[in-house]
Design a protein around this nucleic acid. Structure first.
Lengths: 109, 109
DNA sequence: TTGAAATATCACACTTTGTGTGATATTTTT
DNA sequence: AAAAATATCACACAAAGTGTGATATTTCAA
């Protein structure tokens, strides 16, 4: 099913919103809220150069356009795909968002 | 209305998907696709230290948790909010996604 | 109210991501 | 065949981002 594919993340997003509501209503403590987030957000998996290139091609965009989405220079995308440089913290998070939710998740203009 | 608030970005996302479909069917050229993306993605607005802090507090999370979402160190978030350092390309993109779509847009575990 | 735990501010040395320019090669379009 | 878009490659450089560790402040539970 198509809906099942995104079920897990949708459920988590809904849960997080519920937690916020509970916290604002004073039903749960900040600490509980914190620990909930921590358990949800842990690891941001690394991506190999090949995976990055495959990800970009899956979305049918060129390196310059991919760079535009990520707000980095086009040369950096090239470097990632050839293994010359590795995406840092925020870039890795973006790439994983794209991997799981698609490029459209970034379309917010 | 609640739906109107997100209308613009939702419409863009839907449009982008349609464009992809049209391109795969050979109806439109790659060039048209490229120019479409370029026009959608242009500027990623800067955020002042105050805006970053306000954004984080709007989402009811601490600096360490916010850092977890962005996949950066907690000290860096502190530096951003005090104006000691400024978020770079990918981090800025993430912050703007959070600003427009909320922290949940990043929840993908 | 006392004390522990979570947060936030600050310093500092260090790494390397990310930028910018410019050149060349390859591919894609017209 | 020419033109335009892409992709690979080489540098020098700025500054983003890391990690440790210390201190102050706030928050919360006992």
């Amino acid at each position: 099913m198509k809906t099942n594919k995104k079920y897990k993340s949708d459920a988590l997003a809904a849960l997080h919103e519920s937690m916020e509501g509970l916290h604002r209503s004073g039903v749960i403590t900040k600490k509980t809220m914190r620990e909930f987030d921590r358990s949800c957000l842990e690891d941001v998996p690394d991506l190999t150069p090949e995976e990055i290139k495959a990800l970009r091609e899956r979305e049918y965009v060129s390196q310059p356009i991919f760079a535009l989405y990520l707000n980095v220079s086009k040369n950096l995308v090239s470097d990632w795909e050839r293994g010359v440089k590795k995406p840092g913290g925020p870039a890795l998070r973006l790439l994983n968002i794209i991997k799981k939710q698609g490029l459209d998740a970034i379309l917010s203009g």
